[in-house]
């Protein structure tokens, strides 16, 4: 049995060592894979905050991922075509600056999360799952018909956006950006879990009635968690778009919402590094098994069934010897 801390440290070490090794041996594709894993991990860390801490089974987190993606797509498109973005009341310039794109992605995802959260949190259980799913589908079909930005075909951005002082076209540098963001968000997530808000949110999940009788509002706590969660997944969407230099409606697909939930279950619900481990395993399997067979999802399915049946705490729970429960 490994203590959870050491397991986490091991994962971080791997996420530093593997890309550096790949850089030394010039295996650029490995770096791209690692970047993909880190960004997907970030998207799942976002969901884990709602799911693990708040108990909110959102099946629509692709909404925020897509909003982040289209924020990058639309802003960069207007910058690369030197056209202004007409917002009705006023027009704005596009931008190729990552920090600005991230900020806009976070703000837009948060705003949408407030609306979706307020409507969805009136329900619970299966209805909550369904209503969040429905919002994702709404955006999916909207972008398919959004001809100005490529509709179904999506939108290509020719040059990766910039970050002051770095050359983002160098794979390891872009990887570095994504890795640092993931680490920063994990750090904040760990702090949040132990904060007054984290304690109250934990209680709101486990015993909403008690939470009310000490004078706190479980719904409001969950709403705030949902918004933070959406903002993180939105940021991941912006990075993902920049990795591929491409956005399309598939970023809003319900399959993606399911995929990041799968990372969490695989790694361990409510575990700080659960989504990270899940995403790394997923990307690795997708790559190696995907080369051997088109039906690699079947193997993934088998692993998932085993995890759900025999290791409720996911891989983190299995390895750290603490089956159930949270941090």
């Amino acid at each position: 049995m490994i203590q959870e801390r050491y397991l986490n440290a091991l994962v971080l070490f791997g996420l530093i060592a593997v890309p550096l090794y790949a850089m030394a041996t010039e295996e650029l594709f490995t770096i791209t894979l690692a970047t993909r894993a880190v960004i997907l991990a970030l998207a799942a860390v976002g969901l884990n905050l709602a799911l693990g801490l708040g108990g909110l089974v959102s099946f629509g987190h692709a909404t925020f991922f897509g909003i982040g993606g289209y924020t990058m797509g639309v802003l960069a498109y207007h910058a690369q075509t030197y056209t202004a973005l007409d917002l009705g009341l006023f027009t704005i310039e596009g931008t190729k600056s990552m920090p600005i794109i991230w900020l806009v992605a976070i703000i837009l995802s948060s705003l949408v999360a407030v609306v979706i959260g307020m409507l969805s949190l009136r329900t619970s259980g299966v209805y909550f799952i369904m209503i969040t799913l429905a919002f994702g589908q709404m955006f999916f079909f909207f972008t398919i018909s959004w001809a100005a930005y490529g509709g179904e075909d999506g939108l290509s951005i020719y040059v990766r956006n910039g970050f002051p002082g770095l050359n983002t076209l160098v794979p390891i540098q872009f990887y570095g950006i994504c890795f640092v963001i993931l680490c920063a968000v994990l750090f904040l997530n760990a702090r949040l879990a132990k904060s007054p808000f984290g304690l109250a949110l934990n209680a709101a999940r486990q015993t909403p009635m008690r939470t009310q009788t000490v004078g706190l509002d479980p719904t409001r706590l969950k709403l705030v968690a949902f918004v933070i969660s959406g903002a993180i997944t939105g940021l991941a969407g912006a990075l993902f778009a920049d990795l591929n230099r491409f956005v399309s409606p598939t970023m809003f697909s319900w399959q993606f919402s399911g995929e990041i939930m799968l990372f969490i279950i695989l790694g361990g619900v409510g575990r700080l590094f659960g989504p990270v481990i899940g995403a790394v395993i997923f990307v690795t399997l997708e790559h190696f098994l995907g080369e051997i067979t088109d039906f690699w999802h079947i193997y993934l399915g088998v692993i998932l069934v085993i995890i759900v049946l025999f290791a409720r705490g996911g891989i983190v729970g299995l390895l750290s010897g603490r089956g159930g429960g949270h941090d």
Binding site: S195, P196, L199, V214
Partner: peptide, 24 residues
């Protein structure tokens, strides 16, 4: 933690996100 939840509801602000609650 259960007892602190009560104290938090009665006297503290729950909208604090970074400082560990058990250091209050």
């Amino acid at each position: 933690q259960n007892a602190v939840l009560g104290a938090l509801g009665a006297s503290g602000s729950v909208w604090r996100f970074l400082k560990p609650v058990l250091s209050d």
